[in-house]
Amino acid sequence: MIEGYRIAPIPLHFPEEREQLRAFLARHQLRYESDIQSAFGIYNEEDVLVGCGCAAGYLMKCFAVEPDLRGQNALGLLVSYLMQERFSAGYYDLFVITRAHNEELFSQCSLFPVVRTGELVLLENRKDGPERFASEFWKDGDEEKQVGAIVMNCNPFTMGHLALVEYAVQHCDVLHLFVVEEDRSEFPTRVRLKLVQEGTKHLDNVRVHLSGPYMISAATFPTYFLKKGEDAAALQTELDIALFTQRIAPELNIKRRFAGAEPLDATTARYNRAMRELLPTHGIEFCEIPRVEQDGTVISASRVRKLLKEKGVCDEVIAMVAPPTTAYLKREFLGGNKATLT
């Protein structure tokens, strides 16, 4: 440890400790994020906080160090302590998303750049993380095939999702269907994955996978370092697409990515526009299809969830969801009327 300083966990369950951390970050023009699960602090001889680093799931973030400590490996110590704590919590693939100009600092802390954009860099504690992730899904002969991909949350799996998948399989030999792994939806990850697997098992050329940590969800994208007026969604979108095009798609020979048009959600619509612009620059065709309607209304998972909360498993819900989802809802929702989401 740096002479005259100590490093220790910050007990976030104590409000005064949490507020001290929040205030320290604020002095460094950074924001405390509510999903933080663990944190370490560097304290001087007067027991004043002079450095910190935090983590939420597999993401390490909210690093700040007083100027006097810079150049003394304070950041390296914080990263090392956080890594050990995350390993003990069961997270072995660890990441940092930070400003591009901080890349060298974190590269000196046993972290390796995964992808860069003009503004940001994503680093990981493995050199070959995306390649290891993608290798599980590769089959011999894929290099000769037309390979496509869809990334879906499926919260829950609807007839709209199924229509997109059935369209995509007609336009490629192999379809990788990535179900968003982040478990922050009303329907748990294990349920969403199972419903997609059951709902697509009649399609021989579909391979269903969890998205892993390489398809960045808005829920996990850090915003603590963003300045007022910066567009978090735009930055996250650019980083996410860059990661897909540069590190995932080449490993799986993906040449087409499919998505449904988005007339309702502005953020998703903007993501589609970004894919339309950026994917072709990497030799990937973007295929956007019209959304499926029911009685003149676009089928959406958000509408399904709203109806479930208001009416339970009603006829309108059943008409919008795929058969495995109907079976699941009937099993899980009490009485099929005015039930709440499990």
Rank of each mutant, 00 (worst) to 15 (best):
D128F: 10
M152R: 05
L175S: 04
C154P: 07
E181P: 00
Y167E: 14
D140I: 10
E182F: 11
T189Q: 10
T158W: 15
F157A: 02
T189R: 08
G148Q: 06
V147K: 06
Q170T: 01
M152T: 12
R132E: 08
L123A: 04
D140G: 07
E166V: 04
C172E: 05
E198L: 09
D140V: 05
E181S: 09
H171Y: 09
V165E: 12
G141T: 08
G129K: 12
E136G: 00
L193I: 04
N155H: 01
E136Q: 10
P156E: 14
R184F: 01
H176C: 10
L162K: 10
A168K: 04
W138K: 13
V121K: 12
C154E: 04
E198G: 00
S185Q: 14
Q197Y: 10
S135Q: 12
L195T: 01
G160R: 14
L123D: 08
L122Q: 11
G129A: 15
L120T: 11
G199R: 11
F178P: 11
R126F: 12
L164C: 03
L120I: 02
G129Q: 13
P156H: 15
G148T: 09
E136K: 12
E136I: 03
W138E: 03
S135K: 12
K194I: 02
H161Y: 06
V147I: 08
G141K: 12
R132H: 09
T200L: 08
L175M: 07
I150F: 05
L195F: 07
E182C: 02
K194E: 06
F187C: 06
M159W: 14
Q146T: 05
F157C: 04
Q146C: 07
L123W: 12
V169Y: 05
G148S: 11
G141E: 13
Y167V: 03
T158E: 09
V121C: 10
D142N: 11
K127F: 13
F133N: 01
M159S: 08
E182M: 02
L162Q: 11
E144R: 13
C172G: 00
V191W: 04
A168M: 01
T200Q: 08
F157E: 03
P130N: 08
F137Q: 01
R192G: 00
M152I: 15
D173G: 03
R192P: 00
V169D: 01
T200N: 07
K201A: 12
R132L: 10
L175Q: 03
L193A: 06
W138L: 15
R192Y: 14
L175G: 00
A134C: 07
V121S: 09
L193G: 03
L164H: 04
N125K: 11
E144F: 13
A134Q: 09
K145A: 07
L177N: 02
G129H: 14
E131S: 14
V196N: 04
A168H: 02
G160D: 11
Q146Y: 03
D140N: 08
N125H: 11
G199S: 07
L120A: 09
F133H: 07
G141A: 07
L195C: 05
C172I: 01
G160C: 12
C154Y: 03
T158S: 13
D183C: 04
F178I: 09
D128I: 05
L193S: 01
L122G: 02
D173N: 02
G141I: 05
